[in-house]
Amino acid sequence: MPLSNNVIGCINFISVLLSIPVIGAGIWLAMGTVNSCVKLLQWPVIILGILILLVGLAGFIGGFWRITWLLVIYLIAMLALIVLLGILVGFIYMVTIRGSGHPEPNRAYLEYSLQDFSGYLRRRVQRSYKWDRIRTCLSTTSLCPELNQSFSTAQDFFNARLSPIQCVNSLIEEN
């Protein structure tokens, strides 16, 4: 039994060490940029890093010092994290399952449409609050800010039926 506790402690010590760069990346995202696309990720990354750190510390301390109640908390927390990750993966799969794109003539890439995705995702993206955040994110990109800012609502953007290459072509024509 002591060997298994030491193995649990070592594995969790490694997870504690690996959580530090995750937290650092979240802090770097918070400090380093003003891009609104990146700002959406900063808090989930920081929270994920802190959760990994706390669970890893519980497993490390419980494993090396043989604190049974801390190992029980560690196992419950690890089970909860695994279940939540499974639910997240399942949810993402269900929302995007039909969004595989369809081929268009004379194009080497697949064409995607909002109608290809689930109704939940369509309603969520088309809400004015969410669309304002998406539009702000698109307008901060250096690829095509003037094109992205010309759509006042999400429906205008989706009705435009733009191909991914149209933005690049408009930039080439301008230069």
Score class of each variant (00 low, 15 high):
Trp28Lys: 04
Ile20Glu: 02
Leu18Thr: 06
Lys39Ala: 14
Gly9Tyr: 09
Val16Leu: 11
Leu70Asn: 05
Leu17Gly: 14
Leu71His: 05
Ile11Asp: 01
Gly49Ile: 02
Cys37Met: 15
Gly26Leu: 10
Thr68Gln: 14
Ala30Leu: 12
Ile23Ser: 08
Leu40Asp: 07
Ser19Met: 03
Ile8Thr: 15
Val16Tyr: 03
Ile50Gly: 08
Asn6Ala: 13
Arg66Met: 13
Trp69Phe: 12
Ile14Glu: 00
Ile46Glu: 01
Ser15Arg: 05
Gly32Asn: 06
Leu70Thr: 04
Ala25Pro: 14
Ser4Arg: 01
Gly32Tyr: 01
Phe60Pro: 09
Leu53Phe: 15
Ser36Gln: 11
Phe60Tyr: 10
Thr33His: 03
Asn6Met: 14
Pro44Thr: 02
Ile67Asn: 12
Ala30Trp: 06
Leu41Tyr: 11
Ile47Cys: 13
Leu53Arg: 03
Ile50Thr: 08
Ile50Ser: 07
Gly62Gln: 03
Ala25Asp: 07
Leu53Cys: 14
Leu57Ala: 09
Gly26Glu: 05
Pro2Arg: 00
Ser19Tyr: 01
Pro21Gln: 04
Ile8Ser: 12
Cys10Pro: 10
Cys37Leu: 15
Gly26Ser: 10
Ile14Cys: 14
Val7His: 02
Ser19Asp: 06
Thr68Val: 14
Ile20Ser: 06
Leu3Cys: 15
Thr33Pro: 08
Pro44Leu: 02
Ile27Asn: 05
Asn6Glu: 11
Val45Asn: 05
Gly9Phe: 13
Asn6Gly: 15
Ser4Trp: 04
Cys10Val: 12
Ile23Thr: 05
Leu40Asn: 03
Val55Met: 09
Leu51Gln: 07
Ile20Pro: 11
Ile23Asp: 04
Leu51Tyr: 04
Ile47Tyr: 03
Leu57Thr: 07
Lys39Tyr: 07
Met1Thr: 11
Val72Cys: 12
Phe60Ala: 15
Leu48Phe: 13
Lys39Gly: 11
Ile50Lys: 00
Gly59His: 05
Ile14Trp: 06
Ala30Tyr: 07
Leu41Asn: 07
Lys39Asp: 07
Val72His: 13
Ile67Cys: 08
Pro44Cys: 05
Ile8Asn: 13
Phe13Asp: 01
Leu71Asp: 10
Val45Tyr: 03
Phe64Asn: 11
Arg66Leu: 12
Leu70Asp: 07
Gly62Lys: 01
Ile47Gln: 03
Phe13Lys: 00
Leu48Met: 11
Cys37Glu: 06
Val38Glu: 09
Val45Phe: 06
Val34Tyr: 02
Ser36Val: 08
Leu71Lys: 08
Trp65Gln: 08
Gly32Pro: 08
Ser4Pro: 10
Ala30Asp: 04
Trp65Thr: 10
Cys37Val: 09
Lys39His: 11
Pro2Val: 08
Leu57Ile: 12
Leu51Glu: 07
Ile52Gln: 12
Gly59Phe: 06
Val55His: 00
Gly56Arg: 00
Gly32Leu: 03
Gly26Ala: 09
Ile52Asp: 10
Phe60Asn: 11
Ile61Arg: 00
Trp43Ile: 12
Val22Leu: 12
Ile47Val: 15
Leu29Phe: 09
Ser15Cys: 15
Leu17Asn: 04
